[in-house]
Nucleic acid binder design. Structure first.
Lengths: 337, 337
DNA sequence: CGGTAGCCTGTCACCGGTGACATGCGGTCC
DNA sequence: GGACCGCATGTCACCGGTGACAGGCTACCG
């Protein structure tokens, strides 16, 4: 920048003014500076600006796993909206280990992003409190703990209740539940919805067909096979998330039970192309991402406006054929791409 | 930091030394400083450090689309390796528009990352030349143009040749080719491989069954249907990438042609769970990501070591059943997760 | 013609951590 | 006793852009 200033015969400050389209710059000077910028291929130092101003014009996104179709689609929408405003988006994966959450999130925060969209993976987000003054933080998918902040979550309880009730409506009494750890808040809520649906139908709960702790598709597949090999196997399955479902489908096929009635919480690409097409609870990741990033900009543009902290988005059952009965789809099953 | 220094009764520099485990710090001082750090919950300002040193201890990854399973898996491996070295990874999507490449990549570079892994989407990467002195740049998936740099690509020509030859071996003479734009270098090379295989078998090329320009799964699906509705339809299909394939599968189903012989360049989750299971050319995204990130660290650790610039990774045909004939799988089809 | 307002440009300090260098102190060796 | 070394700590400038503030110049007004 000093070089540009020297070449144009002005001060560094004036170059800064030209860069920012300051009103008070004469045409003569502006042109000389612009030429010097071109000749020297000057690129402003973003880090210096961030350092000085204390905030980077970027949004950080921290999710458990970018390759999960739910988070990938969500992230895509965040990028789309942010790009329209000329804001950069940086994504990072946290993994499933609760201990990795804090370092991963702080790696973004300490780079002074002005907005953060993140999924809590540990049981305590109080460490984010000092950051809230400087950064708009929105939690997605799961509610945060030990902190007050914006969050955009789905109706986990309602979705699981709907799915389970639907299977019950098809005559199933013994419905297997496969999910990851209950320490994950969403899983816990979905398990509650499942239990409530059973209770509402007067069906006693069978703990032996509830398989938790499947942190990968492969583990979920094993869990499904184990359930089917029991002496008293379930007659239908409910999977608590898409990652599990993606492992369960081939597992069912491998034991010749691809026709097993099955509903997945979370849609994913090709779910409709499976045979039978997989019925799902659609979480609408685009809506989650859109709502979250919009909230960030709202907080930025109107710092003192009062807004509802917690946004619960509805989910909907998309019946496609894997639920057990012969029936026309209630919602025409659109594919996720 | 000054506050920490004051509280511990030392200079800021000494705090810096404690943070960096400098040898020349007395135990007494170290403990006082560490206590002050804890009491004030001091978090070092990464931006200041980056600004001063001119480099951020982070790797940037810029790919066309994070939700593409190939790039998602690749990115995952980069993060795994980088995390083991305590290096942060920031991912950003570039989209398909060539004009978006430069701003997206420079958003990362201008934040002074020391390593960049990126996929060229435009036809000219010469703008990266000034950055190469400061940043280790590795191109993945596609070879860069107008610049000399490390690159990790797959054997596009060979893979397409193998797939096409395999279909020819099953008696097909009229093989449809569906892909995105030929301006994408990988697509061009795959088309060449396809053509070469036809030529090697003495089959004249049929330009009317080559459908290019499908930039999304939906478009690829439409292209597939159009090909099948021709008076002289192809008897087998070859898809140039996973995104297209994910659109083609439901399209074939919708016209009752799910049995159409079909090979996809690029594996994806559930390809094996389809009926028939989809045969693919497996690109091994984990190997690409691993090779790329390893190269970054090699360049960092041994700046003057001479290394081969261009790394071509082999691909392999995974036959699963969609190729047309009844045969045992040549490679037991492992699922992508 | 002094006063004032609007326009244009420059100077300087500062953001927070750190490399270069200086300083001071105790011990060892000739 | 002076030279010298290892250790422990402090001082200061600097990275590059920018907010606060200070002029200087022109034009217009009373």
């Amino acid at each position: 920048m000093r070089q540009v200033a020297e070449r144009a015969g002005v001060s560094a400050k004036t170059v800064s003014r030209v860069m920012h389209h300051d009103r008070y710059v004469s045409d003569d000077v502006r042109q000389r500076v612009e030429q010097a910028i071109r000749e020297l291929q000057y690129v402003p130092n973003v880090v210096a600006r961030t350092f000085r101003s204390g905030r980077d014009d970027a949004i950080g996104v921290a999710v458990p796993d970018i390759s999960d179709p739910f988070f990938a689609t969500l992230t895509h929408e965040v990028e789309r909206v942010a790009r329209a405003r000329g804001v950069a988006v940086f994504v990072t994966s946290l993994g499933d280990d609760a201990a990795d959450e804090r370092p991963g999130v702080e790696a973004l925060l300490s780079r002074q992003v002005f907005g953060l969209i993140t999924t809590p993976t540990s049981a305590d987000q109080s460490y984010l409190r000092p950051w809230q003054e400087r950064t708009a933080i929105v939690f997605i998918d799961r509610s945060p703990a030990k902190i007050t902040a914006d969050s955009v979550v789905e109706d986990d309880f309602g979705g699981a209740h709907t799915a389970t009730s639907h299977l019950i409506g098809h005559g199933h009494q013994r419905i297997g539940f496969i999910g990851d750890r209950v320490t994950v808040a969403t899983t816990a809520r979905r398990l509650e919805g499942y239990r409530a649906a059973l209770a509402d139908a007067g069906i006693p709960e069978a703990p032996e067909v509830i398989a938790l702790g499947a942190t990968s598709g492969a583990e979920a597949g094993r869990a499904a096979r184990d359930l089917l090999q029991r002496p008293d196997p379930p007659t239908a399955l409910f999977s608590s998330n898409a990652r599990c479902s993606i492992g369960i489908v081939p597992a069912l096929q491998s034991v010749g039970r691809s026709g097993m009635p099955f509903i997945s919480f979370g849609d994913f690409p090709l779910a409709e192309a499976l045979r039978p097409p997989l019925s799902v609870i659609d979480q609408d990741p685009v809506a989650v991402g859109h709502t979250a990033v919009t909230r960030i900009f709202e907080r930025l543009d109107h710092p003192d406006r009062r807004l509802k902290r917690r946004i619960v988005l509805p989910v909907r059952l998309v019946t496609r054929g894997s639920c057990g009965g012969d029936h026309a789809p209630a919602v025409s099953g659109r594919a996720v791409s």
